[in-house]
Nucleic acid binder design. Structure first.
Lengths: 220, 220
DNA sequence: CGTTCATTTGAAGACACTCAACGTCTGTGG
DNA sequence: CCACAGACGTTGAGTGTCTTCAAATGAACG
């Protein structure tokens, strides 16, 4: 039996269910979809009439420059809501980071079901977190060095689960596109962190933090 | 008579007033404050009980790393609302970009005055724009080169006013801290853009776009 | 009209990127 | 179960872009 991403972060962990009536209703009412790794959930500029929630696995939102350069906006993990947009259409596209399950429901249907107040609360919560993360991301991309970015990222991942070993649901390329680096720089930085005994990898996608203080200090 | 930032972008331009009852009420009810250049309006981690609107001049929000590296989150111009936070406290600090006037009102007072619905609408509008900009900012910082960043920035500024000449309310250091670059790189890039006749500066803070197509293409 | 601050320019260096080769993991079919 | 293929990740060498440090120039203000 191998440790997978899902076994580590079930949707019910972290108290993410039950906080919000509308979120619960979303999971109950929503259509359950199985999405294969790298399959698109919605595209950039498509109409944003559906609201999604990750049941298992993880999702990324991405934005492309005309010449193909890619930036990942955020990762979404089990229990999290995504796809809510302030505007009419999706500003990013969303794809499955690994094989995963999501539930989707029409915004209008959800609103009708739980009432405007509960619906608005959910939208507000989701948007707030979105903004929070985006602003933190701006600081990371604007002013942190490569090692600081990678360290920050590992800290975030480690904080998500209190587990001994943290499992990364994404590959190196996704990390790079999230951190505004190349895959080679990410790889080299991870190697350094291991050599300095700050973290320890068991396989490509599983690591343990050996020196939380050092990692935290490196995150700047 | 010299062209100043304020004469170019009065608060009533762009239809920014009247769109929203609560925004209008904010300006009517709010305490009018005069803020000197570089003076702090609120600090990072302070309680966010006031909501602000720029009357004249411009404002920046900034975030600092422990060692002093600075990232500017956003610039706010005449007519725009700022200081609304999803959480309890301010995630960034806010300072006057130049001598400016703002109005400030207690969130609770504004809510009582205009009703919850109108208040929520305003909060939602402000937060949406905030998120939009932050996501665009992430793409810029994560994947654009120095010239692309500067070109993007000048495009944004040019789009704000249809005026012949665009006036920048901020200095080079603020541009650099917004774009995730150094002041020297910004300066060199601006010089290049002038040499290629894409833009033309008249003084340090006033420019005209000569070749909008080229500028747009450079913005990536 | 000089002082001060902001911006520009120059030269040298560092950090991250590119290109290329090598290693390792995973899944598939023999 | 092993061999193989293909994808993914690591490592190395060289390059380029942006930064750093330093000096000169230019603008703003009393």
């Amino acid at each position: 039996m191998s440790l997978t991403y899902d076994s580590q972060f079930p949707a019910t962990a972290f108290g993410l269910t039950g906080h919000c009536d509308a979120t619960e209703a979303l999971s109950r009412m929503g259509l359950r979809l199985r999405i294969a790794k790298d399959e698109e959930i919605y595209g950039q500029d498509e109409d944003a009439d559906l609201i999604y929630r990750v049941v298992s696995g993880a999702v990324r939102t991405t934005s492309l420059l005309r010449d193909g350069r890619r930036q990942i906006g955020e990762f979404y993990y089990a229990g999290e809501v995504f796809g809510i947009e302030p505007g009419q259409s999706h500003r990013f596209s969303a794809e499955a980071l690994c094989d995963c399950e999501v539930v989707a429901v029409k915004a209008s249907a959800l609103k009708a079901a739980v009432g405007e107040a509960a619906f608005d609360r959910m939208v507000w919560r989701a948007t707030s977190r979105e903004l929070d993360r985006a602003q933190e991301h701006v600081l990371l991309l604007g002013r942190k060095t490569a090692s600081e970015r990678v360290a920050s990222f590992l800290m975030d991942m480690a904080e998500r689960g209190r587990a001994e070993a943290v499992v990364l649901p994404m590959g190196r390329q996704d990390m790079a596109d999230y951190l505004g680096l190349t895959i080679e720089t990410v790889s080299r930085t991870l190697t350094q962190l291991q050599n300095r005994l700050v973290v320890e990898f068991a396989g490509l996608r599983q690591f343990r933090v050996n020196d939380l203080g050092a990692l935290s200090r490196m995150a700047a």
